[in-house]
Simulated scan of single mutants.
Amino acid sequence: MLHYLAQFADDHILFNLFRYLTFRTGGAVLTAMLVAFVVGPGLIRWLRKKQKQGQPIREDGPEGHLLTKQGTPTMGGVMILLGVGVATLLWADLTNPYLWAVLLVTLGFGALGMADDYLKVTRRHTRGVPGKVKLAVQIALSLLAAIWVVWQGTPEMKTGLALPFFKDLVIELGWFYVPFAVFVMVGASNAVNLTDGLDGLAIVPVMIAAGVFMLIAYLVGHALFANYLQLHAVPGAGELAVFCGAIIGAGLGFLWFNAPPAMVFMGDTGSLALGGALGVVSVVTKHEVVLAITGGLFVLETVSVIVQVASFKLTGKRVFRMAPLHHHYEKKGWAEPTIVIRFWIIACILAIAGLSTLKLR
């Protein structure tokens, strides 16, 4: 919205600032963080009043959770969505077509997660929206976004899969690219959801990944930088840097209340939305494989669940003491802050690995 002030730059030189993507991205970070800080206390009080007993805790989960997390409200992802939504609408160029695909997935997945959290709280059970229904809604929203992104793409790259470490290698997937893009969005959404099991565990890796893709979006959206780094340019993708900045700002604001011991959980409201957001940004910027590297922590958590289920069904034995992986280390006696901080370190290392692909070609 504020981007429109740039047209008055000839009359007021101060308005020229709104031409610059870097300035508007910084504004989005600060705005989203401020919204989360302002909304957070009141939202938490309201959630406590309405939910009373807080988020239902798995009885088959780590024993300590029944003592330390009982009564903590969920649906804190609302403050993240408010921060991201307000900051993006305020600072981004609303004529950018990619922006609306990203908002569709983020807010749509957030609404789905909110419905899931609501059912869990009202029914006092850890099962919310049926899995098949949840998956069907995710696929439908992702399909709409994928078709829109392909339609807006350049002819040479709209259905191509770019591989890191290679200068010109693009695998042309044709219309198979659409289901592939849907898989990326849905997979990323559920991977973040599986990771969200300890105080602060999911939100920091999400912010780290958003920071990586904020830079990637800026670079591939800038023809000069893309050409210098031998990246595949995506005209218009730079505007998603504002959106990624909003995720970082809202995430910082949320972490203030989610830091151990958490005052509120993001719930599926936040985790499904943030995972889907990272997925669709990677699709727009043509860096889907880099998301798997940068978000490797989410991949690892998801693989641990798949391995655990497959092993138990095939052999009757469990590979891990409990899945997802962070619960395995809880069962081994690691303190929660130790697990969280070490996983943050892993996320930082993977982010550096993801960034290195921009130059190692």
Rank of each mutant, 00 (worst) to 15 (best):
V289Y: 10
G187E: 08
T88S: 14
V102K: 01
D117A: 12
W100S: 14
K286H: 09
V86Y: 08
I349R: 04
A181W: 05
L141N: 00
G200F: 02
V192N: 03
H287E: 02
T74A: 12
H328S: 11
F176C: 04
P155F: 01
L141I: 13
G131F: 03
F312S: 06
G174H: 13
L2F: 11
A9Q: 10
L215P: 00
T74Y: 07
I349S: 06
H65D: 00
Y4S: 15
A210F: 06
V264P: 02
K331V: 14
I293P: 05
G270A: 07
L229T: 11
K50R: 15
K69A: 01
R123M: 11
L252G: 13
F23H: 10
W91T: 11
M263E: 14
S142V: 04
T68A: 06
W151R: 15
I147S: 06
A217M: 08
L360E: 06
G27S: 06
Y177A: 07
G295H: 08
F183M: 14
N227Q: 15
R45S: 13
F18G: 05
I216Y: 03
K286S: 00
T154Q: 15
A223V: 10
L141M: 10
P155H: 07
E336Q: 09
I171Q: 05
H65Y: 04
V84T: 12
L103T: 02
I352E: 08
L47M: 09
I171F: 12
I171V: 15
V105N: 01
R24Q: 09
V234G: 02
Y218R: 10
F23E: 11
T159N: 14
L17G: 10
V290E: 13
L82N: 07
G76T: 05
L278P: 04
A6F: 09
K331Q: 14
I147Y: 11
L291N: 01
S304T: 11
F254L: 09
Q51Y: 07
L43R: 10
V284W: 10
L81Q: 09
L161M: 08
A262W: 00
L300S: 13
T25D: 06
I346W: 03
V129Q: 11
L82V: 10
K132Q: 12
H328V: 13
R19T: 13
G71Q: 00
L198Y: 05
F312G: 05
